[in-house]
Write a protein that binds this DNA or RNA. Structure first.
Length: 493
RNA sequence: GGCCCCAUCGUAUAGUGGCCUAGUACGCCGCCCUCUCACGGCGGUAACACGGGUUCGAAUCCCGUUGGGGUCACCA
């Protein structure tokens, strides 16, 4: 059958050039970001370059808001790039909407060399033609305009029709060695000549994507599995580009597995879990999310799945990526995030908490208090968003504190509160002294079970059934507030 | 439907012919620790889709079946 002899890239080290080239539509999807991450990690691992390009050739769907969100996402996750939007580089501009002239030039060359031909048929006509010929309408275009004569083209134009441009694809098998899947061959005839330029002259993704990859010297294309079927078409285009001198080689391809949601369906854009910022809003930290995302189709070792981004870069190789689709498991993601939260230096942890505290931190005193409280909650959280429920009592006025209904004490409440109110005024105000005094009075002297003794006190000071450790919390709150809150709950019983 | 991809515990994975009576992590269950919730510790549950080959030996190689997914756009 004979493959088209395509000279694939031989880059293996610092000459590697990968790219991230999203379309700015909608909010960043976790699958898209996983693709960005793998490209980034591969560039950093090999010492190569990451190019960040924007594919905004569809004015109908593209938006500036979406573009800004992509930048935001990359920066938030600390995925930096070497050339591209916001940064420039030798192949600028990096937004396809600004590269029209470049495409026009390539189109002219390709057309002059006979690789592109004019196609006047509409979708309806193509389908009618298939039906008439007893062909499966799903078979698509049958290349029937490949050899239209000048007279025939003139006739179409006389009707006022403008032609789309199609690439003449070679009539041979087309194959490549996929970095994650191995040898893949598409038999000749698996696909037909495809449109690369609209009748209005606007080039399509199928054209601009490989053309830019060629122009920008991309050596490795790591992208979603959904693009696997279009790879032979792109190789066909590459072959033509090489012939006219626009490209020197065909990149290596690596098709990354899908990121699935619940069940067996692709994580849809409508699903909140697919939205990167949804996870940020809930309190994922970049370290945790990057770690988890890297585990979707890849693993570092057989026995450790919590690691730093440095360790990721050191170990990452695209050939180790697993070809089967992965499900996004929120529970696992949260667990890993919790591990990374615990890995943060406590000052850093406190600093990152601030945006999740709903404006609770208003001055230096609040900041100081937060710093003292941070160690109490750092190991009890998986998401930064959990902080507010745990810590808000420290930043609430005594008379404004509300007691949750499910936290209200039972029969022993009054005795416990009265006893605490009696002992606490006289103790030294440290965690140790408070605990010693309360244990002596409630547990030892009165024989109350710890659980029952401390529950009402917890409710009194925090208003909740669940809180940071009790005695530490009292110390942070101060004697005055503590006593006021105990009295308030006592009065409410 | 044509073509292509995929197939290990519920989930993510380790495994590249013998180290596998299949390892790890999350989840789940139990116990310990314990002022709540967590963290931590200990133990448990649970998988090679099926059928043929090849081989002294297969989760690992080959073929087929089944199942899932993608793609066949003048979207990207």
């Amino acid at each position: 059958m004979g493959l088209v002899p395509a000279p694939f890239s031989t880059a293996t080290g610092t000459d590697i050039r990968v790219r991230f080239c999203p379309s700015p539509t909608g909010t960043p999807h976790v699958g898209l970001i996983r693709t960005a991450l793998f490209n980034w990690a591969y560039a950093r691992h090999t010492g190569g370059k990451l190019i960040f390009r924007i594919e905004d050739t569809d004015a109908e769907r593209d938006s500036e808001v979406s573009y800004l969100q992509l930048i935001d996402a990359m920066r938030w996750l600390n995925l930096d790039w070497d050339e591209g939007v916001e940064l420039g580089g030798p192949h600028a501009p990096y937004r396809q909407s600004q590269r029209t002239d470049i495409y026009l030039g390539v189109i002219q060359q390709l057309k002059a060399a006979g690789h592109l031909y004019e196609s006047f048929a509409t979708a309806e006509e193509i389908e009618a033609r298939n039906v008439a010929n007893g062909r499966d309408p799903k078979q698509g275009y049958d290349n029937f305009e490949r050899d239209l004569t000048e007279v025939e083209r003139g006739a179409y134009r006389a009707e006022g029709r403008q032609p789309a441009l199609r690439l003449r694809v070679p009539d041979t098998d087309l194959g490549f060695d996929d970095l994650v899947r191995g040898e893949i061959t598409f038999p000749a005839g698996s696909f037909s000549d495809f449109v690369v330029v609209r009748p209005n002259g606007a080039p399509l993704y199928t054209f601009v994507n490989p053309v830019d990859d060629a122009l920008m010297g991309i050596t490795h294309v790591l992208r979603g599995e959904d693009l696997l079927s279009s790879t032979p078409r792109q190789i066909a285009l590459y072959t033509a580009l090489i012939e006219i001198g626009v490209a020197d080689f065909v990149p290596r391809f690596g098709h990354l597995p899908y990121v699935l949601g619940e069940g067996n369906k692709k994580l849809s854009k409508r699903d909140p879990e697919s939205n990167l910022f949804h996870h940020r809003d809930r309190g994922f930290i970049p370290e945790g999310l990057v770690n988890y995302l890297s585990l979707l189709g890849w693993s570092r070792t057989h026995d450790r799945d919590v690691f730093s981004i440095v360790e990721l870069v050191k170990a990452f190789d695209v050939v180790d990526v697993n070809p089967n689709p992965a499900r996004f498991d929120v529970k696992k993601a949260e667990s890993i995030n919790g591990d990374h939260i615990r890995l943060l230096p406590v000052n850093e942890f406190a600093r990152r908490l601030v945006p999740y505290l709903g404006g609770l931190i208003k001055d230096d005193a609040d900041t100081l208090l937060l710093l003292k409280a941070a160690p109490l909650v750092q190991e009890r959280m998986q998401l930064l968003g959990e902080a507010q429920a745990l810590l808000s009592f420290l930043f609430t006025a005594d008379d404004a504190l509300e007691f949750d209904a499910d936290a209200l004490p039972g029969a022993e409440g009054a005795e416990v509160l009265d006893a605490a109110l009696t002992v606490l005024p006289g103790v030294e105000w440290t965690t140790e002294a408070i605990e010693a005094a309360l244990r002596a009075e409630l547990i030892e002297a009165r024989g109350i079970k710890p659980r029952l003794a401390f529950g009402p006190l917890r409710t009194a000071i925090s208003g909740k059934r669940i809180s940071p450790p009790l005695f530490e919390s009292m110390e942070l709150l101060g004697r005055e507030s503590t006593l006021a809150r105990l009295a308030k709950l006592r009065a409410a019983l």
